[in-house]
Amino acid sequence: MTTTTAPVRRPTDESQVSVGIAMVFLLLMAGYFLLPIYWLVVNATKSQRDLVTTNGFWFGEFQLGQNLADLFARDDGVFLRWALNSLLYAGLGAGIGTVLAAMAGYGIAKFDFRGRELLFGFALGGVLVPATALALPLFLMFAGVGLTNTFWSVFLPSIVSPFGVYLSRVYSATIPEEVLEAARVDGAGELRIFFTISVRILTPALVTVFLFQFVAVWNNFLLPLVMLQDSTLYPLTYGLFSWQSQVSRYPELQTLTIVGSLVSVIPLIITFLGLQRFWRAGLTAGSGK
């Protein structure tokens, strides 16, 4: 942080050095974070033979096409099924979860009712309890109603986002009361106000909530592990894990796990790049007010 502000204060030769140091540092960090992805890309193109015999940081014989074909052909294309499941759990789950969180947070921020701080306290408590600790109680509850090993057993917990409620409330507090009053005077109902006015003001916050929830569900591992036994219901993370757990006995699964991991991060990258625009635009809009 200090290095970026340095040029403003002292536009001298020294600032060039600071910028240079900052650049080197940032490049190092970028390299550090991108190295695993680079490794993944390189090794996803290799045959099992090259995977074990060639340098892990450079290409062998290029056979990404073959690996991809094998990946989507394995077990009658179960990988595609996993990908669709992940999109459903994470995409739909985060979408509904964001709407619910926004409504809850907005309601707590903008309406005065008995027990609202208590309600918010519960939501905050939910932020503090790790999802890991909830997996088993959830399993027992779902077992009680006979819903384990179903789509719902992973989907329903995915639409709950205490952190989203928290963020929505904090952001909702910034919505000017005058705007809402004006809309009410004009005769708009509360639902209409929420969806046409508040949601637009809240957009950057909601994109953040969506991204957080999407990534959390996409990467959720323990819940599917505890809930699911039917491989057609697995999300990508758990499906790839089930392959990886067997590589000592079935080495050919190594290449499939690696190329599958590469494919599985693509939707995350697309989501981030696609939504980043809204995110940044929203943040600047807020700061320029």
């Binding site: 399993f139 077992a143 009680g144 036994q229 491989s231 894990f241 089930s242 757990s245 067997q246």
Partner: peptide
């Protein structure tokens, strides 16, 4: 049910499932 190897979590799942019926 096509699952991960036993010691990769399947055994503990099975114990949970036995308890939950």
């Amino acid at each position: 049910n096509d699952v991960p190897a036993g010691n990769a979590g399947t055994y503990s799942n099975l114990f949970n499932q036995l308890k939950a019926g």
